[in-house]
Design a binder for these strands. Structure first.
Lengths: 346, 346
DNA sequence: TCTGCTTATACTCAACCTTAGCATAAGTAG
DNA sequence: CTACTTATGCTAAGGTTGAGTATAAGCAGA
């Protein structure tokens, strides 16, 4: 411990940081959870571009909309909204702060001595209405970046391919204690050896893969990667800077939140059928739900009310159209949409 | 919307911010939830000191341990730990990031043109072992700052005194819509007119009181206060800067978290009785729990195991001593301590 | 020692919720 | 008219929760 004085340290030690505001804007269309991205920007580091060329052809890496905090932004959230709107044309409704990332050497490229970059990550929910109308932004299925997170059609096959290098890494710890700790992490994060898969451990899984060297960002950042598993590096598409980590944080938060707060309605159009709602929740959580029980839950909790219309484009028997009740939107009732996603079924 | 370029804006607009790390360190002793504070520091603003003199005698305002992020701190968390340790001598175990506060004019004193101050708030849990051994830090019952949050002995009397000015404020809205919206907020936040009290709305309540002008910080920051209710300003003790807001955020987060993650064990000694555990949870949540049901829950979820010892200092029949099971500490099982704190009983 | 007080712990019962179905309704496509 | 699709109603078994009752086992003081 440095003998730092209790009082404010000298001004020369205090560090002025550049603050970056980054948004994970989520929508839901065609049964997929989508995230708003812009193709590689100037803020993608030189290393990003190098990787883009060598590993991904000439395509630049997808990036989340983001921009620096400026003095004209009265609040952080206002700054975020402004950046997202100018970069993508999407006006945000629901916005929630996620996490502030600020490790000194976070960005691979930042030379020593550069001032530190803090990134404040936000989760925003939007209704996808047509294409983004500014820049060349686009909506992307988020499982493109996290293919192992989608269990809607059963356990993703990629997990079988990931498991071996993970276990190899666990077994390669220096000490016995270290090996046991690594194994524990692997098992819990990925639901192996009888431990149940938990839909919320998204960040834990991504960080483990990064540490083990199974995602492309690890190579870019100069970490040693698993040579025997290089082919895995592209199974989940990388993103610029540490945006994939921020996206993982957002997915984890959202998956947790839908279980106790009715936030899904931010993603739904004004009128919808119960199955559409179910599909939205399933898309976010990455699991399938029992249909009858889902409806009962939603109905008995009084989350929705009938609009009186009938939707015939269901492919089967027509469905009643419903909308969220106003009290729910005001979070007055809102004890939450207690979803039957406790244990993930195999 | 400003016609900001999609690419990084000019360096002159980009703003370098000073980053402050602030910790809410929580412990539990003698049936009270405690928070670690230092008496008024130099970082308390001039306005703080003025208020301290005029409204609170010569006593300085309590402040949370905090300090600026410096270049020597490799991670934000490392910086936080360093500051807490030098200022209070307390070494932190469990640490979790809470929220980043960064409104431009957040600190009342910061003159225009000063660079913006960001505060990153953290929640830390500790076992209170004796007094803090550095500086003049001390552990304080957190309900000293939020007397309306403690329902363990029934509905706090202060709520009756607060209710009237709140309703007056609601009725003083300019338009009908505004009045309805205000009333809605008051009712939901404070559990009036049949709405149930929710232990987690701590921040919502504090911010409402601030906005209405019923906490001393509002006066200090130059907001108009309710003249008829000046005597209420001291019922909850104010803190330096916006530390009371950060503390409210921490309490809200912790109250939410104990319901689905077994985090209480961070506050407990290695061995304890079930009643001690119950008292800790009650202290945090601010409500009383049904004893037999609490034990059933804890036991059937396999959170604890017997140590084999018997504690005789209970004041009644001796109790079995238990400890947390290792799997729980590793969060391996950890589906959470589902507590019977759904509805707060009157 | 006996009484009363305190806390610990076992057990119960009714209400409610959840899981995993079965069964039927009402459209469309051929 | 048949096959298929989705919508929707309903139920039995089992689990969880809330609110007790009953009894055990210490201590302090009459």
């Amino acid at each position: 411990m440095l003998p730092a004085p209790r009082l404010k340290s000298s001004p020369t030690e205090e560090q002025a940081a550049v603050v970056d505001l980054t948004a994970v804007v989520v929508a839901f269309t065609q049964d997929q959870p989508r995230v708003l991205v812009t193709p590689g920007q100037d803020r993608a580091s030189a290393a990003d571009r190098r990787m883009a060329r060598t590993e991904l052809g000439t395509a630049a890496l997808d990036a989340l909309p983001s921009g620096p905090l400026e003095h004209r932004h009265r609040t952080l959230e206002a700054g975020l909204r402004a950046w997202v709107e100018t970069q993508t044309g999407v006006r945000l409704d629901y916005v929630e702060q996620l996490y502030t990332f600020g490790d000194r050497d976070r960005m691979s490229d930042a030379g020593a001595g550069t001032s530190r970059v803090l990134s404040i990550g936000y989760l925003a929910l939007a209704q996808e209405v047509g294409a983004p109308n500014a820049g060349d932004a686009s909506w992307r299925d988020w499982y493109r970046y996290f293919p192992w997170e989608d269990w809607r059609r059963g356990r993703p096959a990629i997990l079988d391919r990931i498991e071996k290098p993970l276990r190899r890494w666990a077994g390669a710890g220096d000490t016995k204690v270290e090996r046991a700790a690594r194994k524990e992490r692997v098992i819990v994060a990925f639901g192996l050896d009888g431990v149940a898969w938990s839909d919320e451990r998204v960040l834990e899984r991504y960080e483990l893969l990064y540490e083990v060297g199974l995602v492309a960002e690890a190579r870019r950042d100069g970490l040693s990667i698993d040579a025997k598993a290089v082919d895995l590096l592209h199974e989940g598409q990388p993103m610029a800077a540490d945006h994939r980590r921020i996206l993982a944080t957002a997915i984890a938060r959202l998956r947790g939140k839908i279980k106790y707060r009715p936030v899904v309605f931010e993603l739904m159009p004004s009128g919808f059928t119960l199955l559409q709602l179910q599909r939205a929740v399933e898309a976010l959580a990455g699991v399938r739900l029992h249909k009858q029980n889902f409806r009962r839950l939603v109905e008995q909790q009084g989350l929705v009310e009938e609009t009186g219309h009938i939707i015939t484009a269901t492919g089967g028997r027509p469905a009643r159209e419903v909308r969220f009740r106003e009290e729910v939107v005001l979070e007055r009732l809102a004890p939450g949409l207690r979803l039957p996603i406790a244990r993930a079924s195999e």
